[in-house]
Every structure is written in C-alpha cells, then in structure tokens.
Computed example of a mutant assay.
Amino acid sequence: MPTPTARRRQKEPAAPKVPASLTPARLPEHDLENDGSYRAMLFKSLDLSSRRVRTPEFEGCSLVDTAFAGTEMHRAEFTDVELGRCDLSNMRVRSASVHRAVVSAGRLTGAAWSECAFHDVVFDACRADLTGFRFSAFRTVVFRECTLTEANFQDADLRGARFERCDLTGAQFSNAKMEGTRFADCTLAGIAGVTSLRGAVIRSQDAWGLVHSLAGAMGITIEDAS
C-alpha cells in the first residue's frame, strides 16, 4: 500500500474548468468593485492596477496580459481561472481562496498573498521573487520553473506543495509545516528557517545547497580546505 507521502507525489492539481465561450470584459463596465462577480469572462490586455476591493469573485475566467499591479483584495475568490502573462506585482491579497487555477508566465514580484488557501493550483514559469505567502495553506499545488528568490513562506502550510526546477535562493520557511513537501531540481542556497524542512522530500543533488544553512542552524562552522 502506498504511503501518504507517495500518494501526494503522484497527485496532480485538477485543471481549471474554463468555458469555451467567454464574454470579453471591458472598462469601465467590468472594472473591479466590492462584491463584484465575474463569471465566464475574458480579461485581455486590461489595466486593473491600483484598485482596492473586497470580496470579488472570479469564476470560469481567463485573464491574459492583464495588470493588477499594486491592487489590494480582501477575501477574493478565484475558481476555475487561468492567468497568463499577468502583472500581479506588489498586489496585496488577504484571506483569498484560489481553487483550480493556473498562473503561467506571471510577474508576482513583491506581492503578498497572506492567509490564503490554494487548492489545485499550478504556478508555471512565474517570476515571484520577494513574494510573500505567509500563513497561507497549499493543497495539491505545484510551483514549476519559478523564480522564488527571497520568497516568504513563513508559517505557511506547505504539506501539499511541490517545487520543480525553482530558484528558492534566500527563501524564508520559518515555522512552516513541510511534512511531505517535495523539491526536485531546485536551488535551495541560503534559505532561512531550514529546520522547518523536517519531513520534506528533497532530491540528493538539491541537498548540497542546504549544507551551509543546516550547518548555521546547528552552530557548525565549515572551513575551506587549506
């Protein structure tokens, strides 16, 4: 019988269910607003930056080349959505739910997604340096070929997350829950909170990047050969 860890390894995130026919979104008619409901819509090449909204809902939507830079959202819901080449930099998102979503080739630099719930989500080829995911929970989530340098996963529940070919240099994992979290072909140099990786599964070639972080956490001094 496969172990729980093995089952998590084999499971892939469910794909978003986006309708074949979508209504094109236009401004100002479909601008972001409090309690706004956006269903089966195509947001293409729109500028939705610097908005501040509460409880917006996106369901069955495709968002392409759309900018949310600096936008603040509280208790947003994203269900069955695809985000392609969107600018999500410096967003402030709190207590959001993201279910069955793909975020591809997006820019998340400096964004903060705190106390959020991610379920069946793929982040593919995203630039997410300095992005914060503090106190967020990840269930069947894959980060694939993402730049996550100095990303902050402090106090996050990463037991359902997988990282593939990601650069996690200087990332923060203090107090994170990571039993069963998987890392494959990732750069893990200089990460903080390394002791929180207890129970994680790491490929042997990736483990070398943890040597100095682990030594520092254990008070071990590593000297170069003279």
Rank of each mutant, 00 (worst) to 15 (best):
G180V: 02
G180Y: 01
S174I: 03
S196H: 01
F173Y: 12
S21H: 15
S89T: 01
A189N: 06
R26A: 13
Q172S: 04
G190Q: 05
V53T: 06
S37K: 15
R159H: 06
A117F: 14
T5F: 12
V194E: 06
V122P: 00
C146H: 12
Q205K: 12
G70I: 00
L197C: 02
D80N: 15
C126H: 09
L197N: 00
V194M: 03
R92Q: 07
D129L: 03
F143K: 12
S204T: 09
V53E: 00
C166E: 03
E29D: 14
G190I: 04
L148A: 08
A101K: 00
A117N: 10
S104N: 10
R9Y: 15
Y38L: 02
R52N: 11
S226W: 13
F143V: 09
H212N: 05
A101T: 00
V98M: 10
T131A: 11
L108I: 00
E164K: 09
P24A: 11
V142F: 08
V201K: 02
S213H: 09
C146T: 09
F78Y: 05
S62G: 13
D65P: 04
G193A: 10
A40N: 11
V211H: 13
P24I: 12
T23A: 09
T181V: 12
R162D: 11
S95I: 08
S213F: 11
T149K: 07
V201S: 01
I202G: 01
M73C: 13
A192R: 15
C86F: 05
C86T: 05
A217M: 05
H99Y: 11
M41Y: 13
L22W: 07
D206K: 01
H119Q: 05
I191Y: 03
F133Q: 11
D47F: 02
V122M: 00
